[in-house]
Structures are given as C-alpha cells and as structure tokens.
C-alpha cells in the first residue's frame, strides 16, 4: 500500500506539471480558449535605410593666382582667417561655405571621410597644404565622436577618417559641415581637382 501511495503522489505531480506546461504554452503562443474570438493581424515592415548625401557637394574656387608677395596663398572655406576673408594673398573666388553632408536616411550612421588626393597630389609645388575641419551644421548632429574639429591633413587611405561615430537622422539635426583649407605655393600651376568621399554605415 505504501508504494501505491507513492505512485498516486507521483501521478498528481505529473498531472500538475503537464497542466502548468500547457498553461505556459497557451500564454507563449497566445492561444486563448474558453471564449469565442477571432483575430486579424496587420503586419508591416519598416526597413532601415542608410543614406547620406552632400547637400553642398562642390567647392570651386575658380581661376586665380598667388599675389606677388608672399610666396603662397591661403584658401579657407571657414572664412575666419585673420584677414576676415576666405582667400588670402590670392585672386580666387571667395568660397565661404564648406561641403555640407546630410544624413537623409532613417537610421543613425557613422561617417568616414576619404580624399582622392593629398596636398602634394592635389596642389603640388613647394610646401602645399590640403586640410579639412568638421563641425555640426545643426546642434547635436553628431551625437558622439566628432573628430578633426580643427584643420587636419586630409586622409587618402581607405576607409578614411572616422569623422563622426553617430550622425543623427532627424531633420532638425542631421548635417555636418566639412570646411576646407588649401595652401597654394607660387610654383604650383594648372587645373586642380580632388574628390572627397563620405561613407555612412548604419548603426545597429
């Protein structure tokens, strides 16, 4: 009779365990019984889209020459040079706005910047310079990790320089400014061009 009681106890335990399992499964898969219901489902998927674009995609100083003295000219889109102009010691057009980069996707991105040419390849001559400086065009556009905020030599090695770890996508704060600084020596001549490529990578 003792073993019979043990079997009975075990049977109760089995019943309770299976009942609890059933309840858990009902809850997990949303199966509801005991009332008559019907449900419909509306499904949609919103895909994330990483997209950045240069809203202002060109800096063109036009044609010009270095003044008689000194031996070089400075072209600076920041326009905050000592002389209060974007071109010093030269006759090029004043370009007072740098490149403007916007996150026009629906996900925050990190941004890398690379140039097709360094100063020597771009300008040539004796002691040229080609630099960029990054800033927010709207407060908080780059929420984290903004880099090269002061003029820094451009990077020509892929994937480039990580200029922002977290560029926001909301319209109110999704733009960066890339100012450019060029030092033109008097012995540089010809038509010069460089391409700057920005790469945005979606953040998880």
């Amino acid at each position: 009779m003792k073993s019979q009681k043990l079997i009975l106890t075990l049977s109760w335990i089995i019943v309770i365990t299976t009942l609890l399992t059933l309840i858990v499964v009902f809850n997990k898969f949303g199966v509801i019984t005991g009332r008559a219901t019907d449900t419909g489902e509306a499904n949609l998927t919103i895909n994330t889209s990483a997209s950045i674009s240069f809203v202002d995609n060109s800096v063109n100083w036009g044609s010009g020459s270095v003044d008689e003295t000194p031996s070089f000219a400075i072209l600076d889109t920041n326009g905050t040079t000592a002389a209060g102009t974007a071109v010093i010691n030269g006759s090029w057009n004043n370009e007072t706005t740098g490149l403007m980069l916007r996150n026009d996707g629906n996900v925050n991105v990190s941004v890398d910047l690379v140039s097709s040419k360094d100063a020597a390849a771009f300008i040539g001559g004796t002691n040229p310079a080609f630099k960029w400086a990054i800033s927010n065009n709207e407060t908080g556009s780059c929420a984290a990790g903004i880099a090269n905020t002061g003029y820094t030599d451009v990077n020509t090695t892929a994937p480039g320089t990580r200029i922002c770890d977290d560029l926001q996508y909301a319209d109110s704060n999704d733009e960066l400014i890339i100012d450019l600084y060029v030092r033109v020596p008097e012995d540089a001549l010809g038509t010069k061009g460089a391409v700057i490529t920005a790469t945005g990578t979606a953040l998880a």
Partner: peptide, 23 residues
Amino acid sequence: KLPFSETTNTASVVLDIVKNPAK
C-alpha cells in the same frame, strides 16, 4: 538581422592656378 547597410556620396574640390604676371 537586417543586412549591413552602407552608403557613400562624393563631393569635388576644384581650382585653377595661373601664373601671376607680376611674378
């Protein structure tokens, strides 16, 4: 998991350097 998403865009920087006759 959503596929790795990357986007690129380019901009140009140009100028023409001519000799200053005074030099």
